[in-house]
Amino acid sequence: MEIGSKEELRVLLEHAGYDVPDDELDGMLRVYQVTQERLKVLHAADLDDEEVAGAFSPKMTGA
């Protein structure tokens, strides 16, 4: 399957529970491809031992 293809996007979204009409999928494909390119760069970045930004605190419970 081609990376960033319409078929790939359809399968991913169906797996997530979304049945997207074909014409709408056409419109989403360009955004998907741009996003995939950027994700490639993001995953290629050497983040060493950097942890996730949002730190969980057991005291943060809200009202």
Binding site: L9, A16, G17, Y18, L39, L42, L47, E51, V52, A53
Partner: peptide
């Protein structure tokens, strides 16, 4: 919904 858990976690690490 097409993003993976790794995409999200990597993004939060990028933030750090």
């Amino acid at each position: 919904a097409s993003y993976t858990s790794a995409d999200y976690v990597q993004s939060q690490r990028a933030r750090s």
